[in-house]
Design a protein around this nucleic acid. Structure first.
Lengths: 344, 344
DNA sequence: TTGTATGCGTTATCAG
DNA sequence: CTGATAACGCATACAA
């Protein structure tokens, strides 16, 4: 079942393959008539050029890949849109490529670069625990977007766009403290998970200290299951355990909005009220937090702006307009209905 | 900046390219020592085979692609997992490929088939308004999963896995009627959108008729914006308009869970209660409906089973074990807290 | 067990 | 403007 090739088309048209190639690719050096004639034959025979062959031959491809770890995370939804738009505006092709949680994103990137002759890469989500020499293998421009780097790598080796998880996390806790909360629980991702979760936990600890509140280890709840720790289900389970433990607290900080909603459910199910009995605060700024009942106070990451800035930096790098950059965005505290005031 | 190829490796190792190829691809006809030696060199030089070249050469690739339209739809999240698992269990590679809402999925499929030498394809989401001859161009096995076909095409030409949107929709309305509701509003996708929305609306109309309830056009609300009609935002807007219109109703059926949650928000925001003032029912069975407050009654599509069955059929087709099949799954009514009983 | 040569389907170079 | 031909990087038939 051999499929039709450019040669077949050339034969049918009675022209050379290069002429067909020129017709397909809108080359200038071809007369209107031959082009029209060829395109007609192409259409009639449903000829579709083989991209592998094309990629193999091409030296320069004008395509950008976004490698996303955790595509199921609703947090990325809006960013994808922006990437698509921005990249297409710049007349480049956009490839969204999912990397599985057990895959090494750099390996995947390296393969894709070769396969597609990429111009640039965006790494979205996940966390880098890579060594410097790993990063150095990527010879094309790339930007880490909403990624926590844990290793101490030279900032000159990469670009990044992110929020400061530690300080945003402090913001959360300071806000709760301002409202009189002292017994503040936190729902974080499994303790071996060296990631964004660790940073947000760090912010929590720092803020408690600066507010002179002693840390109660029993109020720090870690998810068991991985790799998908930031789910509603985990938030629900953790909250349920916490409630059943009998440990006292007045507010809970879930390090993701999904977990926050799960936590809310557990609280409501136990017959308690939000925010009257317990205050809840999330992180990320998912739309869903607005629609939830009660609406949930959270820190919004400016995802659209972050995606836009990511592409800006990437194309600046591609056009050699800049060295590697690190842009940190400020989160926005969205004050909703899930926090009560304890002091007056 | 030429990148390293199999030839370079061969040269370094002092062997032929075919030997290197054999080493990389775990061929049997190669001695342990040469293989180990070669692999060591491969590692040291970070050699990564070019997939385009490989795909071009290969005749048989053992890869399955899932083309998904509307990847941002949380409905597909769980299915993706299953596809990945099932396909990997069968020792095939899994490619998730996003098709944009303005793209023709068949065109995309045709390209991908050539590029990757696919063994099979799953079309996930969206709706087919394609002619028969379009479908006939796809020469490899494929299955339409959770897709509404609007054209009248010969069922022998394709396989499908779905729920019966019309009858599930009737189930919804019959349930509401049983609880004494008669003034039932429905939130559907924009009227030009010939899709699943149309089918669910049809079920609504049919069920009203069989329950001897006259249709009130004012209770049928269409989203304006496309292409992403099934969002919380649209549910919210539609509900708000409906409430402000002053039209009387006791229950609302949103044809997607996301819309249902948006609708709930609008109701709650207006100071009304669910289900005391208004009953709400959704469709799809997203996890979120459980976590919402109040939890939302909905029709659950058995997504995992559907994904599993999709792969089963696909591989049966690949292995020539079967002709094209059409499997219809039954939805499950998840009774939650968002419906009140009007009659006693 | 290993090496050589050929072709996969395109695009690009270069001569006509 | 057009056509032959040489790559692109790899896998494989075939020869050794």
């Amino acid at each position: 079942m051999k499929s039709i090739t450019i040669k077949d088309i050339a034969k049918i048209c009675g022209v050379g393959v290069s002429t067909v190639s020129r017709a397909i690719n809108d080359h200038p050096d071809i007369s209107r008539e031959t082009k029209d004639m060829i395109m007609e034959v192409v259409r009639q025979n449903n000829f579709i050029p083989n991209k592998s062959a094309r990629n193999l031959k091409l030296i320069d491809s004008k395509t950008i890949a976004v490698l996303i770890k955790g595509i199921e995370n609703p947090f990325f939804q809006k960013m994808i849109r922006v990437f698509e738009e921005e990249i297409q505006n710049r007349k480049h092709s956009f490839i969204l490529h999912r990397v599985e949680s057990n895959q090494d994103e750099i390996e995947v990137a390296l393969e894709l670069i070769k396969e597609k002759r990429l111009k640039g890469i965006v790494f979205l989500g996940g966390f880098f625990f890579h060594q410097e020499d790993k990063l150095k293998e990527i010879k094309i421009p790339f930007v880490l977007s909403t990624i926590a780097i844990t290793e101490n790598v030279d900032k000159k080796l990469y670009s990044s766009v992110s929020v400061d998880d530690i300080s945003e996390s402090k913001k959360v806790i300071n806000y709760l403290c301002k409202y009189g909360h002292e017994k503040i629980a936190i729902l974080v991702a499994g303790n071996k998970d060296k990631s964004i979760s660790t940073l947000r936990l760090q912010g929590y600890l720092d803020a408690l200290e600066s507010n002179n509140i002693p840390v109660n280890e029993k109020l720090i709840r870690y998810t068991k299951s991985s790799p998908n720790a930031y789910t509603m289900e985990n938030g629900y389970k953790l909250m349920k355990e916490l409630l059943e433990s009998g440990e006292e607290f007045s507010a809970v900080y879930a390090i993701s909005d999904s977990m926050a909603m799960g936590a809310c459910k557990a609280i409501l199910e136990s017959g308690k009220k939000i925010p009257d009995d317990y205050s809840v605060i999330g992180f990320d700024g998912l739309d869903m937090t607005y629609y939830y009942n009660p609406s949930i106070t959270t820190i919004r990451q400016p995802v659209e702006d972050m995606a836009r800035e990511t592409t800006n930096i990437l194309f600046d790098l591609i056009n050699k307009k800049t060295e590697n950059q690190h842009k940190v965005f400020e989160g926005e505290l969205l004050i909703r209905e899930s926090i009560s005031r304890l002091n007056k």
